[in-house]
Write a protein that binds this DNA or RNA. Structure first.
Lengths: 337, 337
DNA sequence: TTGTAGGCGTTATCAT
DNA sequence: ATGATAACGCCTACAA
């Protein structure tokens, strides 16, 4: 007779019966507990092999009270930043035998709470990336989801470790660079005012203005993508600033593209800098001066701070990861008109 | 007395006790089964609320025999193609109440088998993206992981639905375009010979050669990234081809960057095309002629073919998704020397 | 060293 | 309409 299509998977009981031992013994063998007679080990192994037996993850999850899984919730899976974090967590967690469950809230702040709690229920821990919800809601969520770590979102709390890319510092780096080149009038092309990441950059601008009293920085809100940079060219030219600090590389590259069309030469007439150092920035024309941000490390550090593994690092002060300046062709010394 | 730090979560039994009903009734209430007395429903709801009760996903997974989770295994989470597929599956699955577990084999073909089987054990279904393993191994894996769908990898089998981007067709589109422009000598900058995706493009070249007997296509293996395109410029120029078909947009953009440095003007002296239509391709100088591929749709279609949902589409012939030509500035008519 | 038995938290069957 | 009770498949004292 042929095996019926709905292939009933072998259970531990089947193997026990086939090997003529108790389920307990099969369990011990499968988990490599040393206290089992060698001949029995063989017998069980053989039976398991023959029946193509694999322990049910679901059942051992229930029994052990853990899932060996960590949830990663991001606002937008299409964002390269979050892709990098996801990749970092996935690989770091994999080394410790953990899997990753992803959640994409699609930029709906209202959906974050449920997504986080739901994800955490299925997993042993949670990595919450750049949550858009307000501080109070966030603290509330953190209380019910430990262990949890927050990535790229500063919030006053002891309830969870935090790991963030230091965009204030990054902006400081490019401004130092531009200042050294003689620029005294800059324009900042910002992202969404509400975004934590944009606020961080703004505080970097503030700090720079304190550092350099002669410096003037205009601020505009334009967006985060190539198109946003492209359409901000007129704004930039009208401002008569001699250098542009873009929200990120995409905005900077979009702007470069449009400036080329308009016949504005970079860096001769205008210096442009981005933030992130995406791969293409080395290849654009001109190549883009920017700040290389340790995005993968965010994920890796997040995983470590979760403290699920032995070589964990469970310190609780917020961790700020700093980028490094990549000076390229899109910046040059200020030219007198 | 204060609650001890290890907050014991409330179970269904706790709620049952608090509401003075049986666990079965609590279960029915939680699942919205209509056959419960209204006053009891209220009593249970109140108790659940007070105890902050949430059903254990792990326990219901075991009891129900399903996890409401689908696994997505990719060779490289850093690859934009797979990121797009992951995003597509995640969002489509979320609409049907499913979560996604990710697996990254980091281009190690040897790790794919275990990763796939392991992932499938924890989930109700598996999306296997562009597996690198050989056909026999693949068929073997498919047999033990149904329901499973293969994305971007053609293989002779009835065991699993397949969804792929039709790169042969894409290459055909750009070659038609170049041929129309008068080009008769092309050079193809390919990716890894072993990769299914490269083979697809090659078959597109073969078909084009059949279609146009006057056409000559040189073939080189250069890689898949910006750097690979950059360093292939000399090879291209030596070939004296009048147009380049790059493996993808990254290779094309890298090449454009280097050609600029070398003083070769595009498209006047050389036409260049890519494949994929990544966002930046519209903004490069010159903007890149390429083929827009429906990457998100791959994920969405993969999810549908899994057939876990009502509006599933479980047909079994391989599904090929075609791209569309985006003619831009990097291609132009052949100039006589 | 091995087996017995109870528990993990839920759902489902079958009485009542 | 509600409540016992038995799965679901595994792990782990405890006993032998």
């Amino acid at each position: 007779m042929s095996t019926p299509p709905p292939i009933k998977l072998a259970t531990i009981a089947d193997v026990a019966a086939a090997a003529n031992v108790s389920r307990a013994t099969v369990s011990r063998v499968m988990n490599g507990l040393s206290t089992v007679d060698a001949t029995i080990v063989d017998r069980v192994r053989e039976a398991a092999e023959r029946l193509n037996y694999r322990p049910s993850e679901t059942a051992r999850n229930l029994s052990l009270g853990r899932t060996q899984t960590v949830a990663v919730v991001v606002p937008d899976l299409g964002n390269p930043m979050f892709q990098a974090i996801l990749r970092g967590v996935t690989r770091a967690a994999a080394e410790d035998g953990y899997r990753v469950l992803v959640g994409d809230t699609q930029e709906q702040a209202g959906a974050e709470r449920d997504a986080a709690i739901e994800a955490r229920r299925r997993c042993d821990a949670l990595v919450l990336c750049a949550p858009r919800m307000d501080d109070d809601s966030l603290r509330d969520v953190l209380a019910t989801t430990t262990p949890v770590v927050i990535v790229n979102r500063a919030v006053e709390t002891e309830a969870a470790p935090q790991v963030s890319a230091d965009y204030a510092h990054a902006v400081g780096l490019v401004i130092d660079h531009l200042f050294d080149l003689g620029h005294r009038h800059l324009i900042y092309l910002g992202g969404p005012l509400a975004s934590a990441s944009n606020q961080l950059r703004m505080s970097g601008l503030d700090a720079a203005e304190k550092r350099y009293p002669e410096l003037r920085i205009d601020r505009r809100t334009v967006g985060t993508g190539l198109d946003d940079g492209w359409s901000s060219a007129e704004t930039v030219l009208e401002s008569e600033a001699s250098a542009v600090v873009a929200f990120n590389d995409l905005v900077a590259l979009g702007l470069l593209s449009r400036l080329r069309e308009l016949g504005t030469s970079v860096p001769e007439q205008l210096s442009v800098v981005g933030v992130d150092d995406i791969p293409y920035s080395r290849f654009s024309d001109p190549s883009l001066t920017t700040v290389s941000m340790p995005q993968d490390e965010l994920g890796i550090e997040a995983w470590r701070r979760l403290g699920l593994t032995t070589h964990a690092d469970a310190r609780n002060e917020p961790l700020w990861l700093e980028g490094s300046l990549q000076a390229r062709e899109s910046t040059g010394p200020l030219r007198k008109k």
